[in-house]
Structures are given as C-alpha cells and as structure tokens.
Design a protein around this nucleic acid. Structure first.
Length: 410
DNA sequence: TCTGGGGTCCTAGGACCC
DNA sequence: TCTGGGGTCCTAGGACCC
C-alpha cells in the first residue's frame, strides 16, 4: 500500500528524439555532436547534448553556424520523418502497455495520469523503453502537468532519468527560470522579468488577481498549476484534430503560374493523403502563398466534407487563380479546417460523393504504400518538380521501407 | 544570400441582430 | 442636428507548444 495518495502526471519525454533516432542505426555517432536539420536543410531543429554544449541554439540558421559545425565536425542530417514517426509509434506502444490512458502530447512525449506514485515502476519503464527501442527517455512527475513538465526539465538538466515533485520543493522551483516553464514563452517571460519575476518560485507566489489582469487566462492557469491546482485535464484521444496542414518552402523560389500550380496540386495531394490516413474529411480549404515579405491567403467552403484528392485539387487551384499575381514565391501551404470523421459522414442529397471515387482513393493509397510514395500521382503535379525541397543529408528509412532496410555484412 | 513545419488556444475587434 | 446598448458569431492575428 502506498503511504500517501497521489494524483498527478508523469511526463515521458524522449531525449534529443530525432538525434536519438539517427543514432540507432549509426552507433558510431554516440557521444559525438549531431544535429538534425529542418526541411530544406535550412536550420537546426534537434541537437545532441554535445551540440548543445557547443552553443548551438534551437532553430539556429545553419549558415550562421557553419564555422562551428565544420570546426567540430558536427554530423548533420536532413529530417527523416518516416523513421521518426515509426520510432515514436514503438515508444508509444510501450507506454500504452504501461497505462492505456496515456495522452500523446507530441511526437516524442506523452503524459501518463497516475494515482500512485511509484518511482520503481517508472524506472523500470525507462529501462524497458531503452532496451526495446533503443530510445533514451526522461520522466518527470508532478501533481499537475506544468509541474510534471518542470520535473522533466529538471531531470534533463541534472542528467537524471526520473525526477519527481513530491512535496513542497520550492528550492527547486527557485532554480528554474520562469521562461523555462511550460506555457511561458518569450513574450510573457520578458514581461514577467519586467515586473521582477525571474524564477518559477516568484511566479508561484504572485497573486491570482494580478496575474489574471496582466497575463489573462493562460497566465493564471500556469500560476494555479504551479500551486498544485490542475487546470489542464487529460485530453481524450477520441477527439479528432481541428486542422491539418501541408506546407513547405520551395527548394528555389517560383515566379510563374505553371510551376506554382503544380506545387499547389502536389501539396494538396500530400495533405489529402494525410487526411485519409487519419480517416478524416475536410469542409474548408485554405491556400496561402508567401514571398520574402508578404503573404496572401484565401479560403473556400466545400459543398460537402471530402477527402478525395481531385475534388481538393480543383478547389485549391481555384483559390490559386484568385490570389495569384506575379511575384517571387518562397513558400506555399494548404490548410484543411472543419475536420470530421470519414466513418460517419453527413451525406448531402445534392452533392453526394461518387462512391467510386472513395474506392479510387483507397486504391491509389494502397499502390503508393506498396510501390513507394508517388508511384501514382496526378498530372496536375507535373513531372520535373523544380521547386521540391532540398534534402541533401537524408538518412535511409531503415525501419519503414523494404528498399532501404539495413544490410548487415558478416 | 542562405532562417521549418504542424498544431492549439485565446483575444480583440468587426459585423450583425434586436 | 440630435443617434443605445447588449448580445452573438466569426475571423485574423498573436502567443505558445513541439
């Protein structure tokens, strides 16, 4: 029997997740500085501890750090999301086995609601994940999500695999910068500093009314959570997401309508494929285009919810015609809103989706799954794709593509 | 010269209605 | 020439998260 009743959360977070994934198949990278780049190989989105120690910040533009990268022979990788999401699935499966009520918060972290504080069980879980998947994780435990996050931050900072906020541990809150708290970003952090609040303990001692008046509801929630009062409940996984995006910076800028049209058709195809994968439909589609210093956007409502690619391409291209003017475009994006489940579709007497198009989409998806992405594509996407993103340092998809499976020579 | 992508939530302000 | 007040809904933009 546990001596005290506890109600709270454990936050399990993978350490330097993308870097850890890259290291799985390249053990020689252990203890070496490694970074993973953003799409288009533009900036740094994941760093190993060794790279962090060299002073490379999150989101650093790569051209600004080229000299450090070369001097220390930092290994760089283009992002390999097939690998990362596969590894994420494997980690989450183990978490589900531990507790069926986990809330997956991002690709590399999940909250586990806990009622009994048993650090032994959690330590075992950390070891099991490392042994079964090769991914190192850290766990933070606290009575609220914000405190679990803070505990996790502390664990990472101190090199621990598990840290637990058990009782009143104000001396640790005092050591945590207010800007390192979950929910306190750059703006709010700066504003708090302006009022003389620099660490988590000072924020914890602030008055509710004052914080509410200066920082509105989100600020008040963070304060209450620091004081141990839960404001963020466990999100039910059956709630489906509210929007879905596919956007990408072009490998090189586009000025003419034709290639832009092909890029928009391609992005829409990709977004529609994600929509079907998640068994969702959309009813509102937006297109946005970006130049160096301006953005243009337009939306259209569809007569009925759909995830059929040709219908969505047609809508996206109609938006493109509406907003296109001659310019140097650097980026485009497709947004889908008002998502609903494709399993329970509200039919419309006037605009009923042709059942054959559903079969066609499912056939296209299956062909592409079996024979590789874009084995089948739409003519509107074009052939040459001069705008495709740069990915010069892509590692193989060892765990998700038969063609790229690891060869072991004996 | 070169700076990512995918999400959520909140708020202010405008449009509209009575 | 004088011209209310309260409510709802929608949207864009901001801030935050990873």
């Amino acid at each position: 029997m546990p001596s005290t009743v506890f109600k709270g959360y454990a936050l399990v977070d993978c350490n330097s997740f993308y870097v850890s994934c890259e290291r799985l198949f390249k053990p020689h990278l252990e203890n070496k500085p490694v970074v993973v780049l953003s799409n288009n190989d533009g900036c740094i989105i994941a760093r190993s501890n060794e790279s962090k120690a060299l002073g490379i910040p999150m989101g650093a533009p790569i051209f600004e750090y080229r000299s450090i990268i070369e001097a220390h022979r930092i290994e760089m990788f283009s992002p390999n999301f097939s690998l990362y999401s596969d590894m994420s699935d494997r980690v989450m499966q183990l978490l589900y086995q531990f507790c069926p009520d986990i809330e997956i918060y991002s690709i590399d972290e999940a909250f586990i609601p806990i009622t009994v504080q048993s650090n032994d069980d959690l330590s075992q879980l950390v070891k099991k994940i490392k042994r079964w998947t090769g991914i190192p994780v850290s766990v933070g435990v606290g009575p609220t999500k914000t405190l679990a996050k803070a505990a996790n931050f502390w664990a990472k900072k101190k090199g621990l695999s598990l840290f637990s906020f058990t009782e009143n541990q104000n001396h640790i809150l005092k050591e945590i910068d207010v800007g390192d708290l979950w929910g306190v970003g750059r703006k709010v952090s700066k504003k708090l500093n302006g009022y003389g609040i620099y660490n988590a303990l000072q924020l914890k001692k602030a008055s509710h009314e004052w914080i509410r008046s200066k920082f509105n509801l989100p600020g008040l929630r963070t304060l209450l959570e620091l004081q141990g009062q839960s404001c963020f409940q466990t999100n039910v996984s059956s709630d489906y997401q509210k929007s879905l995006t596919y956007s990408s910076t072009f490998g090189k800028p586009i000025e003419d309508f034709e290639p832009l049209k092909e890029a928009v058709a391609h992005y829409t195809t990709q977004a529609a494929c994600r929509l079907r994968k998640k068994k969702l439909t959309t009813q509102i589609i937006s297109l946005y285009l970006k130049t160096q210093d301006a953005a243009f956007q337009s939306s259209i409502s569809l007569p009925c919810p759909t995830n059929t690619t040709p219908v969505l391409i047609e809508a996206a291209l109609s938006l493109l015609k509406k907003i296109f003017k001659k310019a140097r475009y650097k980026k485009a994006g497709i947004y889908f809103w008002q998502l609903s489940s494709s399993n329970y579709q509200q039919l419309d007497l006037r605009f009923n989706e042709n059942p054959k198009s559903l079969q066609l989409m499912s056939a296209v998806d299956q062909v592409n799954l079996r024979f590789g992405k874009e084995s089948l594509f739409y003519l509107a996407e074009g052939f040459s794709k001069p705008w495709i993103s740069k990915r010069d340092r892509l590692s193989p998809r060892h765990s998700t593509s038969f063609d790229e499976i690891l060869n072991i020579k004996i």
